[in-house]
Design a protein around this nucleic acid. Structure first.
Lengths: 213, 213
DNA sequence: TAAAAAATTGACCATATGGTCAGGTTTTTC
DNA sequence: GAAAAACCTGACCATATGGTCAATTTTTTA
C-alpha cells in the first residue's frame, strides 16, 4: 500500500512506534526551526537530527508546514501556563515575582521553543494569529482585570495591565531570543545559571519597584 | 565588458545613478528581509519592489548576502545613536526618559529595520556578532559607568546597568518586533500614534519608578 | 502463524531560486 | 562628437529542496 493517511497525530493517539518517532521529530524540528526559521529549516536536516531518512519523516508529517504547526502547538502549551499565580486575593508582589521567575525559567530551559515562537511573531504570526487574537487575548483580558482590581484597592501603583504583560514578556524572553546580544554586552560566551539568577533578580526588582511594590 | 567590479558601495561614492538605485534597493530589501528573513527573502522580490530586473540588482550587489550586509549596516547606524543623553551630569530621570522615547520612536517609525535586526539576533547574529562584541559592548560598558556613577551618588536606585540596557531594548523593541502579538492583546489591527504614546508613557513610568526616579 | 496494518526506505521528480553572461544602451569624459 | 565608462537586460544554468512512490520489512492482530 502507498503511504497511509497520517490520521492520528493528536497526542496520545497512534501506536507505540509513532509516539516515539513523532517525539524525536518534534524535538529535532524545534532545534532546526529555532536556528534557521521556517524557510531556512530543511526537512533533510530535521530528519538527520531525528535519526531517520527524509522519506520516513514524510511518512509521519506530510509537509514541512505540518511539522512546524505541531512544534508551535507544543510551544503554545508552555506559553499559556504560569499565570495561575495571578488571582484577586494573591499578594501582588508575590504573584508577579512568581510569574517573572517562571517566564525566566522558560527562557533558560527552553530557549529554542522561545525562539521558534519569537520567529513566528516576527513574521506576522501567519500560523498562530488566530490563537493570539482568541485564547491569548482572552487570558490577558482576564488577568488584566485582576490587576485592575489590585490597583483599585491601592495595593499597587496604577499601571496599564495589558502593557504590563507586554513588558513582562519582553523582559523575560529577550534573554532567550536575543541571547547573542545579551552575551555580547555581558562579555559572556553563553548564559549560565548564575547569569539567569542575576537576570531574574534584576527584572523582578525593576518591575516590582516599577509597580510600586 | 562583463559585469564590472562593484567596487565602491561605501556611501557617498559611486555615480549619480548608482546612488539612487542602491538607495531604492536597500529600501526594498529592508522590507523584504523584515517580512521573510534572510532565507525567505528572494532576490526576485527585492528587485520587483525596487522596480528593476533581477539581473540589474545583481549588477549593484553581487550576492544576496551583500545586500543583507548593506541593509544591516544601515540599521546599525540607527541603533548606535541616541545614548548621547546619558552623561554623568545629566538628570537621570530626564536622560533615561529621553532614551526610552527615542527608542520607542525608532520602533514606531522604522519597524522593518528593527525586525531585520531582531531576526539577525534571533539566528545568532552570524553577520554582526563582531560588531556586538566590539563597538556595542564598548558603548554599553561606557554608559554603564555613567549609570554606576549616578547610583554611587545616590541619584537613583541600585540597578545593574548592563541588565538595565538589555531591559530598555527589550521593552521598546517589542512593540516593533512583536507588533502582531501586541496588536492581538490590545485588540487593535495596527498600532497608531496613540498606541505608541500610551506605550511610551507606560514604559517610561515603569522604568523610571523601577529605578527609583 | 497467517493475514493485515504500520513503518521504512532509496530512487526519483518538479520547482524555485541564486547567480552568470554576452550583448546592448545610456551617460560621462575629454 | 567619439571613446570610454557605467549601466541595463533577457536568456540561461546549476543546485537545493520539498515532496512522491513503489517496493520491502517489521509489528500487530486474531
Amino acid at each position: 500500500m502507498t503511504a497511509a493517511a497520517p490520521v492520528p497525530r493528536e497526542d496520545g493517539r497512534g501506536g507505540r512506534i509513532r509516539q516515539q518517532q513523532e517525539g524525536a521529530i518534534l524535538q529535532a524540528a524545534e532545534q532546526v526551526f529555532a536556528r534557521a526559521g521556517f524557510q531556512g529549516a530543511t526537512m533533510a536536516e530535521i530528519a538527520l537530527r531525528a535519526g531517520l531518512p527524509k522519506s520516513n519523516l514524510h511518512y509521519y508529517f506530510g509537509t514541512k508546514a505540518e511539522v512546524y504547526r505541531a512544534v508551535l502547538g507544543h510551544i503554545l502549551r508552555l506559553w499559556l501556563a504560569e499565570t495561575d499565580s495571578i488571582t484577586p486575593d494573591a499578594d501582588p508582589r508575590e504573584a508577579l515575582g512568581h510569574y517573572i521567575a517562571a517566564k525566566m525559567r522558560l527562557s533558560a530551559e527552553r530557549p529554542d521553543a522561545s525562539r521558534v515562537f519569537a520567529n513566528e511573531l516576527l513574521h506576522g504570526a501567519p500560523e498562530i494569529g488566530d490563537y493570539l487574537r482568541g485564547e491569548l487575548r482572552a487570558l490577558v483580558a482576564d488577568k488584566a482585570q485582576v490587576i485592575e482590581g489590585w490597583i483599585a484597592e491601592g495595593r499597587m501603583a496604577p499601571v496599564d495591565p495589558v502593557h504590563l504583560f507586554i513588558s513582562l514578556w519582553a523582559l523575560t524572553q529577550t534573554y532567550a531570543d536575543f541571547e547573542t546580544q545579551v552575551c555580547a554586552v555581558l562579555g559572556r560566551t553563553a548564559l549560565g545559571p548564575d547569569d539567569y539568577r542575576r537576570a531574574t533578580a534584576h527584572v523582578q526588582a525593576l518591575v516590582l519597584r516599577g509597580c510600586g511594590l
